[in-house]
């Protein structure tokens, strides 16, 4: 330990830089606009009651409302009544900064909808990827047929193509089919995971032939073998692939940015955050950072719970 002090020093300095934006993001999501502007309040802010100016402005009484309230406050002038109403509004509109930031995050934009979209898109991408890749991987690993080498060669070639790179022609094709601004557009380009085929094929190569022969003896069809024999053996590899796929698509910003334009109902979490940034003025730093925190948290928490699996999954492509 004493000999290693310099290693800890270097690594701690690195950790500070790595954690700084996370610290700031979470901290700003707790603070009031004033505290953010002046850079005070430590990590949690002072959590003093603050007044939501917009909420007060919305409740600003007009002439009729003042007239309607007049009987309740006999003897008060219109201006006094107005002051009473505004004071009431301010009382009703004041809250702790943390509550303000997080409630704004969910009410200013349909954040729950965005999160649901994120789940729908990532889960359907993963399920379709598996449904397409698993049978192909099984055929490539365990069935002998003329043309197998060619198919596998094609898989190896397609591994060279990053889908983001061909976004423009894909976008044109989807636009021609009238599919932009649909869930299909968000999912379709990712339905084929060449990497998934490759990975599963490598995994299936290690499954003993006896297992498959025994299943055939029992009279199982090849389709049944794929789903009832191979799928259960592949669970560990599938789990790693699931993490790889879900992390990539939850965080993806480029592709949704291209195919979803304007239709908020289809926004994925990163798009929602982007829009928040686009129309927010300076006073909205707090709610925006709250949104960012909400979007980043699920994966970070899952990662902290199942670190080993996540690191395996993300670096999957590095294992040979």
């Amino acid at each position: 330990m004493t000999r290693d002090w310099w290693k800890h020093l270097v690594l701690i300095l690195g950790a500070i830089i790595v954690l700084a934006p996370f610290y700031m993001m979470v901290s700003y999501s707790f603070k009031s606009p004033g505290e953010i502007d002046r850079g005070e309040g430590g990590f949690f802010g002072r959590q003093e009651l603050m007044v939501d100016e917009r909420c007060v402005a919305l409740r600003d009484p007009n002439r009729d409302e003042i007239a309607a309230m007049a009987p309740q406050y006999p003897g008060l002038s219109d201006n006094d009544i107005r002051a009473v109403i505004v004071a009431e509004a301010e009382a009703a509109c004041s809250m702790r900064p943390i509550a303000f930031n997080y409630s704004k995050a969910f009410t200013e934009a349909p954040l729950l909808r965005y999160l649901a979209n994120g789940v729908i898109v990532t889960v359907s991408i993963f399920l379709i990827q598996v449904a397409v890749a698993l049978p192909a991987a099984y055929a490539l690993a365990k069935l002998k047929f003329w043309g197998r080498e060619a198919v596998f060669g094609l898989v190896l070639f397609c591994l060279l193509i990053p889908v983001h790179a061909i976004a423009l022609p894909l976008y044109i094709m989807l636009a021609k089919l009238g599919l932009t601004n649909t869930y299909a557009a968000l999912v379709v380009p990712w339905t084929i995971s060449v990497f998934g085929i490759f990975l599963m094929r490598q995994f299936f190569m290690t499954v003993p032939d006896d297992l498959i022969d025994a299943a055939r003896m029992d009279g199982m069809s090849e389709f049944a073998i794929v789903w009832r024999v191979m799928l259960p053996t592949a669970i560990p590899a599938l789990l790693a692939f699931a993490i790889f796929s879900i992390v990539a698509h939850w965080n993806d910003y480029f592709w949704p940015r291209i195919v979803v334009t304007g239709n908020r109902d289809l926004f994925t979490p990163p798009l929602g955050l982007r829009e928040f940034k686009g129309d927010g003025d300076g006073s909205f730093f707090g709610p925006m950072m709250a949104t960012a925190t909400v979007i980043v948290t699920p994966l970070i928490v899952a990662f902290l719970i199942a670190q080993r699996r996540f690191i395996e999954g993300i670096t999957l492509s590095g294992m040979k």
Binding site: V18, N251, R274, I295, L299, I300, F303, Q307
Partner: peptide
């Protein structure tokens, strides 16, 4: 664990941070 956090986090959110 700490150094791996940025790999997991949504890059767009972190860019804004």
């Amino acid at each position: 664990t700490i150094y791996f956090l940025p790999v997991m986090a949504t890059l767009l959110a972190m860019a804004i941070a």
